[in-house]
């Protein structure tokens, strides 16, 4: 206690960072803030930019955050990012996203046609099933 605190960076889509931290710098709305352990409770908006994290026994790490909220409690700091993706992954993520979007669009187009057809045929099949059941009750 005292030399480290716990940091969580989360966005609605995923958790980006969770672990012990010695020091961090975040782009708050009124300017950059540096936070050491046992900081006074604070709530602030943050702008898009890099959050610099110094974890014990590790080099500085940078996480890109595009806006959000920062809550500081003496031993726990939470960054609620609106959308945040690790800096190194930023370009790759975008590429994957674009590709997935294209694939998704193609898949959806197909499945929509299938849906309409399947729905029509399904209705027919249920009608047939009930007809057969009626038939079976009457005869066989």
């Amino acid at each position: 206690m005292g030399t480290i605190f716990h940091l969580d960076i989360v966005s609605a889509e995923e958790s980006l960072y969770s672990g012990p931290v010695e020091f961090l710098v975040a782009p708050a709305q009124m300017g950059e803030v540096g936070i050491y352990p046992r900081h006074t409770p604070m709530l602030t908006r943050i702008q898009s930019g890099m959050v610099r994290i110094k974890a014990p026994l590790k080099d500085d790490e940078l996480v890109y955050v595009s806006g959000g909220m920062l809550e500081v409690q003496p031993d726990v700091v939470t960054i609620l990012a609106d959308t945040a993706v690790r800096a190194a992954d930023l370009d790759e993520a975008k590429a994957i996203e674009a590709k997935e979007a294209a694939e998704e669009a193609m898949k959806n187009r197909e499945s929509e046609i299938d849906f309409a057809r399947a729905q029509a045929e399904l209705i027919e099949a249920t009608a047939q099933l009930s007809a057969i059941q009626k038939l079976r009750k009457r005869g066989h």
Partner: peptide
């Protein structure tokens, strides 16, 4: 106790 708010309490 209360938070320090930046810039102000209400919008945050």
């Amino acid at each position: 106790w209360d938070y320090i708010y930046e810039p102000e309490a209400k919008p945050v």
